[in-house]
Nucleic acid binder design. Structure first.
Lengths: 220, 220
DNA sequence: CAACAATCTCGACACCCTGTCGAAACCCGC
DNA sequence: GCGGGTTTCGACAGGGTGTCGAGATTGTTG
């Protein structure tokens, strides 16, 4: 509930202590309906009428709770965002464990977050191309993971465990982009993909060699 | 012109030697209009009416040439596909050069192909989430690059230059996915990105360390 | 308990977009 | 100058979005 979209008719009454017998229920019903329908077909194919009917109200009534279909998605994304940020945060705290375990944790949390919210993630990936708000919110989530990675790389370099090389930021962006695309492809069945069971191992392998690498390619 | 969508009214007359004074012109005019408009705003926001008017015909007349807006995109994508396949193909032939140069070539061709057709690539990335034909054609393009990479990795391993490790296929998928996402993000200004000038170098660095890697991470 | 205001609901409307149909105009070889 | 393929478009049907204003419902308050 941080972004500008906020529900329409209720924006001004949000903080009151009483009332709204059916209002909150309805808002939640719309969100629940959206999540339910999204697991069955792409978000783009779900009409506002579908959401309204699913929540037991008429289409115009829908607009009392949300200004548009995208606003529903954005609210759903907010939840994922919070969870993803939390997941990214906790990994940094584990300093005691060995590096391989820590990196594995980072990657598998990323992957798990995607998978746990498959429908929302898929819908956002699509909506972000047309909706600036979705694009920015999504970018912010990614940015968190990138920064988390960057910090960890720098720490490893400082303690002499990882060699210098690419700017940590660039490396972090590249590796997280790989994770995003590979994980997405696995979930969406979109393009060349890695077997679901191997995804984390494959990604980890590339991460480790890129971060701790020591060889340059031999000549011909 | 290989896929099923083919133009509507002209399907049966495609191979004839005479006639069609204005027909072919119009078809090209539609394609040209699409490319022109796509550079200014997202494909999703361009209506069939826009394309028709741009080509100097009415909306119903558009349907004589293409069965839908997506069919136009698909035709545009066909061109990119051919160019991309050609680019992927030529890299494999250069056996004489040193590995680093070959890999760099592979990556930068990929990147250049994307950049040269920015608008089409962006539109396809969006359309592929809703249109199975676009999705499959796009996946096929990616698959070519993956196979090209896979073959090259295996060759390096056979000659003892690269160590064994991940299945070549998985590694190739992961690295190409990284390229796709990083390149896309750079073009679309979408999410955390690497500076345009550094993209190829950053990607190359990760590729080389993943393919020729020799170290495992140190313990804590 | 009546009346007021906030909350909530929906029928009806304006608008935009897609895709189709059938009638008509056009161009060609004969 | 006629017949057949090619090309064009007005008009329609259907479905989606977003808005408006009138009405129903409900909690609060004098």
């Amino acid at each position: 509930m941080t972004t500008a979209r906020a529900a329409a008719g209720t924006a001004s009454t949000r903080g009151r202590r009483v009332g709204r017998r059916s209002g909150d229920q309805r808002e939640l019903a719309i969100l629940a309906t959206a999540e339910r329908l999204m697991t069955g077909r792409p978000f783009a194919e779900i009409s506002i009428d579908d959401l309204a009917r699913g929540a037991g109200i008429s289409r115009p009534a829908f607009y009392f709770y949300f200004p548009s279909k995208d606003a529903v998605l954005l609210t759903l994304l907010d939840r994922v965002t919070e969870e993803a940020d939390a997941a990214a945060g906790t990994v940094l705290d584990r300093v005691a464990e060995d590096p391989r375990t820590r990196w594995r944790e980072l990657i598998s949390r990323f992957h798990d977050t995607f998978r746990a919210h498959r429908a929302v993630v898929l819908a956002c990936a699509q909506a972000r191309t047309t909706n600036p708000e979705v694009r920015e919110l999504w970018a912010a989530v990614l940015e968190r993971w990138v920064r988390c990675t960057e910090t960890a790389i720098e720490a490893e370099r400082r303690r002499g465990a990882a060699p210098d090389g690419l700017p940590a930021r660039d490396l972090a962006v590249a590796l997280n982009s790989m994770n995003e695309r590979v994980t997405y492809a696995t979930l969406a069945g979109d393009g060349p993909a890695v077997a679901e069971a191997d995804v984390v191992d494959v990604l980890l392998d590339v991460w480790l060699s890129a971060i701790y690498r020591s060889t340059t390619p031999p000549s011909a």
